[in-house]
Design a protein around this nucleic acid. Structure first.
Lengths: 348, 348
DNA sequence: ATTAAGGTCTTAATGGATTAAGAAGGAGGG
DNA sequence: CCCTCCTTCTTAATCCATTAAGACCTTAAT
């Protein structure tokens, strides 16, 4: 049985294809009687409705926006920061009645990302490392594109926070409390899967722009407080999980002299650091101060952190996608230091 | 400046459109030299690559699957059960290299859901109430469709758990501990936004099939233990949140005689019940036993719950979407009672 | 009776690409 | 020199629908 199209129905009834099309999309162009007959025949033949791809082609719009995210989706759906962003974006899409097409980024990179075939009206790119091929594919599509967090692409709207400033604020909080032996645990600097100590060279060579900026903020604040950055133990993680944070915590807290404060670039990691501190019988904040980032999982644990407006960024991204601005802007959203119980001056 | 298409490039170079198409999609059909020239001209003209909608139309595939979920996306991205399912589904999609098109369900129902225009190869419908118009739209598309949790649609694969059995197991756990004064707090029975006491008539008239089944399991187990169901206080919620659970908890625990055990159909709700118990200075489990559902947010709180294989269901749904079976199956996944510290025999 | 105005349907152009089959030309073998 | 086989491209059919403009027929008003 051949596929049923508008033409099939038209032939059946001896009317033109256009008439059948009107029956589906512009009821006012037809007599009620004929329209009813058309719909009935369509039903009898098992017509699946006007083909979506053909419609999209003809109308020039897709009714969907594409979303590219650096991590696997399984990870993204477990990450509080990503979820906050998704919520904002999804709500904007929902209000506009457009779909959200989540595109997979093949990790094994055997095949190219399915960006070329994505039937969308715009793209939202979130947190891609420098030089990621998927970004080039997206830009080649020449659709409205907004980038969130990283990397900044001149000529396209950008949404994020002032990473160096936010990083500096987190670090300044610690040095102003009097800490001088600071350790750092960061995830998402590189995408080569390495875990362990990172020297300043590797730190600065991070391929994730936002994290690079955040780290440089840490460094700037520490240096201006007289801390020798080269001596700051810096542990790099490849996975953002509580377990990874714990691993970093043990590494950092095992050093002599032991750091009195640890900066982390996610709340989840910070929770892991707290676990490690607990393992070692250290009191937080008396023996150790810990700062998280994002305020995505920090509240219950009483974690000092930098709050970023995840949902607002998502919502704003959605709006920019749906109504691309004439002048691409670089929008930096506010961030805020939230001081809770995980930080205090070091023991004298 | 008119839009650049394959034809534009072909004209520029004096070759045929087909040749240009081959340059993009079948490099082996062309001499390297010509291919290079084509790609260069394409670049110069700012060609955006083969149009995705046209490609999808011609090839007859979309490279994406559609997802319909009953709740707003902002809610879905905050619900642990939904997230677990999404993770499984997204991972399957990722492995197959297909996109996941999340479709909004307009709550205001002014406009129809954008199901007709979704350029997808298959649909996954999750947790829709009986008679929801979006389901009819989906079925009209005559694409491979799988339904998760509810409603069961004969002729299409179905994934979920044996709800009556799972509900009965939760309730049986309580009555076997000796509880006879049981209360129930459930969310997601109806979609009319009502909150408050629900009599058995309203309970049985629930429009969400899975919850209807789960509740009937509660009833069956209670009744066979000699509990008069009509006297079981039943509090219905319209939102699945900790705050809603707390509200239900206060309502249920304010009754005389006070229930010694409360059944809830989500972990989040159960956490709210625990909050209410704490408000009233009640000891859990000595004064009150609480059972959650899903094992999605239960572990840290030590909540007794029914575990369902969320991620596996999602992964299985993904597989069925990508390779539709000949015989549609009704797959019931295992569930398991996880007994933790929130349940105990009632005080003598 | 004439004509304007509607209502209802058809014609035909259009959106952009894919691919089987065929044509043209060159190279190599006998 | 002829035939065959490649390689490289072209031809033309096909995927399915939308919509402006035009044709035809009624109806109502003048």
């Amino acid at each position: 049985m051949a596929r049923v199209t508008l033409q099939t129905i038209a032939d059946r009834l001896g009317v033109s294809r256009a008439t059948v099309s009107y029956a589906f999309s512009r009821p006012d162009q037809l007599s009620d009687d004929l329209r009813r007959r058309i719909l009935q025949v369509a039903d009898e033949l098992g017509y699946a409705g006007p083909n979506a791809a053909a419609r999209s082609l003809r109308l020039g719009r897709a009714g969907a926006v594409g979303l590219l995210f650096s991590e696997t989706l399984a990870y993204a759906f477990a990450d509080p920061y990503a979820l906050g962003f998704f919520q904002g974006l999804a709500t904007a899409a929902e209000e506009a009645g457009v779909g959200l097409l989540i595109l997979p980024l093949p990790r094994g990179e055997k095949r190219p990302p399915p960006v070329r075939d994505a039937v969308v009206d715009a793209f939202c790119v979130v947190s891609l490392p420098d030089g990621h091929p998927a970004l080039a594919e997206v830009l080649a599509r020449r659709l409205p594109t907004v980038v969130v967090d990283e990397p900044y692409v001149p000529g396209h709207p950008f949404l994020g926070i002032d990473e160096p400033a936010a990083g500096a604020q987190a670090a300044r909080h610690l040095v102003e409390l009097g800490h001088r032996r600071v350790g750092v645990a960061m995830v998402g600097l590189h995408d080569d899967g390495r875990t362990g100590w990172a020297d300043p060279g590797r730190q600065r060579g991070a391929v994730f722009e936002a994290m690079r900026g955040r780290r440089s903020g840490y460094e700037a604040a520490c240096v201006s407080a007289g801390v020798d950055w080269a001596s700051v133990p810096f542990y790099e993680l490849s996975r953002n999980s509580r377990a990874a944070g714990r691993e970093a915590g043990h590494a950092l807290l095992g050093r002599t002299p032991r750091p009195t404060a640890i900066l982390t670039n996610t709340d989840v990691l910070a929770l892991g650091i707290l676990d490690a501190a607990a393992d070692l019988g250290l009191d937080v904040p008396l023996d150790l101060s810990v700062v998280g980032f994002s305020d995505s999982a920090a509240e219950e644990a009483g974690l000092t952190t930098i709050r970023q407006a995840k949902q607002e960024i998502g919502a704003a991204a959605g709006r920019l996608l749906l109504e691309p601005p004439d002048e691409p802007e670089r929008l930096l959203f506010p961030h805020e230091l939230i001081v809770r119980a995980s930080t205090a001056p070091p023991r004298p």
